[in-house]
Design a protein around this nucleic acid. Structure first.
Lengths: 334, 334
DNA sequence: AAAAGTTGTAAAAACGTTTTCACTAATAAT
DNA sequence: ATTATTAGTGAAAACGTTTTTACAACTTTT
């Protein structure tokens, strides 16, 4: 039903190629013809069929984004940043929600490949080396965000230095004189979880504090895991006096457990965490936090894809192609 | 580079059509041939090019979703719901963030059409009748969510009964004995904002309370507008004693203004609002709220599209095609 | 004035599928 | 034993573009 090149061509008694050339505006066409065509295009309300274009040009102008949970503000902001840059460059973003499910993530990857996306950004929850190889061996540029594959290979990757950030947060606690410092982190196949654990350990080690395995909780970055694990820790004979929560939800869950036990959050258990941003202005308890410039992560990830697609040098010295971009988190002690 | 039908065909010395038939599994092929082909497909790791499929079949298996702000939890949940149903039905979701910008929204619509999306869900911020006509006259199914076009025509639309919900919230205030009840709502071209204003007005009218124009604030659903307008209201000679905030952000902003003036939220100004969900568990101030089943809205919207695409009857009696789906919000008084 | 280059255009091939059409070979119905 | 059906397959057209190739008509260079 929609009008196509050949309709315009027939109407003007010229060839399809000429109309195409006018539409694309790069090849040479006489002024006279061009004007005729432009007029007809307007008159007929012609708009190119992007599917046909994609087939012919072998580029879909589409980027795939796989995140575990779009309703998590972290990933929502990441998506927002990515989407904005995508749009700026004439690309669309296909949103895929893996729901923290490894198989679903892999399935999405394959489907996106079939869909001929031009690039892919993935916040992986997987640990499958074969799968990572498939991504990296694919013909399209890929960027890992938040978590990265634990394999010995080059890949693009945007996050913060989680190890250092966790180290700094733990130092914060140690400097306050705490020694009984627990950590609740996410599944260790997620590097963000693993590295935060590493930073915590290093801080303890460097300050002569023995690592107590009872103070290590492995959750899943969700509220319930924070609640459940903290509750258990508070029932141990040896209870922590401070906690490094690997993200905001874990912290909130832990707070619930703490309060249920009749303890006070700052006074009895001092909590620090990642990514606690209060956009209600109503949270009274102070939780020092390392917050990531999440939107920026999405922007940079998409920027890297575009640059790789264009094979251009990065204009900015901030980060390099085929490299890891490590952003600085902000320490917020509100 | 990727292997295609013709590669398989050549390798087996059979025709492309036969291979295609095996891939699609609907046409008849001899068991012998089928097995040969399936084996080759596996061996060569063949996966169909969806772009080519789309061109030929004139269906892109893609749905466009335009929202004002994906980082707003409301739209994030809506997207999540839509995405889940899309995936279940073999569709992808293209995410578009209009940033509350009318022109950008329109532009996105046109781009999505060029992209040959099979359907579109839009949380519009526009008031342009021409634009709405364009959407409705397009060949693809569309569903409006959150806001709907103010035109006399049939269209699909999923939300809550905003007028009634606002009425009920206002009643809640009136029942408490409040008479000086202000409202801060969004831009009135957004029907959610307009209808909430309407419900507020009706409640006042029906209870013999005169509508005071100084108690009507038109913001934009963002924190700052709530803050700014409440601040102004509190500097009026006649100050409100209660507030209906048209969404959570407005409420939070208003609370900031209230507290800055040294007033207490419940005692001095009683606030009710829409969509205040506390997933931190840390918000101590109680704000009675009408919360929408946002994820459900996304699911239903996408479901309607799929049903319209399949031209099937709705299996559920819950809602009808070519109709408005009005969901019940939940009154939360936590 | 011949050779070389430029400009503008049309025709056709290509992108990777699906589907229609046509045909053969086998089977079923008369 | 003829005719009608059905099963299985291949060739070719189609989806709507872009791009390559070719060529005619001018311009410029020598």
């Amino acid at each position: 039903m929609p009008v196509k090149l050949v309709d315009i061509a027939k109407h003007l008694n010229i060839s399809v190629s000429t109309v195409s050339r006018v539409v694309n505006g790069k090849d040479r066409v006489s002024d006279e013809t061009r004007e005729k065509v432009l007029k007809a295009i307007k008159e007929f309300n012609y708009a190119p069929n992007e599917i046909a274009r994609s087939l012919r040009s072998r580029t879909s102008k589409t980027i795939g984004l796989i995140v575990p949970d779009i309703s998590n503000e972290f990933f929502a902001l990441l998506s927002k940043g990515a989407e904005a840059i995508a749009k700026d460059n004439g690309y669309f973003l296909i949103l895929c929600n893996s729901d923290y499910d490894e198989d679903m993530e892999k399935e999405y990857f394959e489907m996106l490949m079939q869909k001929q996306v031009d690039g892919i950004i993935v916040a992986t929850v997987c640990k499958d080396e074969k799968y990572f190889e498939r991504i990296l061996d694919s013909s399209i540029p890929s960027v890992f965000v938040d978590n990265f594959p634990q394999i010995k290979r080059n890949f693009n990757f945007v996050t913060i230095d989680n190890e250092k950030a966790a180290y700094d947060l733990t130092r914060h606690l140690i400097d306050f004189g705490y020694k009984e410092i627990a950590i609740i982190t996410g599944k260790l196949q997620e590097t963000s979880a693993l590295e935060r654990l590493g930073g915590w350990k290093r801080a303890l080690n460097e300050h002569g504090i023995k690592v107590n395995n009872d103070f290590i909780g492995i959750g899943d970055f969700k509220f319930d895991s924070g609640y459940r694990i903290m509750k258990k820790m508070l029932e141990q004979s040896k209870k922590p006096k401070a906690l490094l929560a690997a993200n905001n939800f874990i912290a909130y869950g832990a707070i619930k457990a703490i309060r249920e036990k009749g303890l006070r959050v700052r006074e009895d258990i001092y909590i620090v965490c990642f990514d606690a941003t209060d956009n209600t202005g109503l949270i009274s308890v102070r939780i020092p936090s390392m917050v990531q410039t999440t939107k920026k992560i999405g922007e940079i990830a998409l920027d890297i894809i575009i640059k790789r697609l264009n094979n251009k040098e990065f204009s900015s010295k901030e980060y390099k192609i085929f490299d890891r971009v490590i952003l600085e988190p902000t320490f917020v002690n509100a």
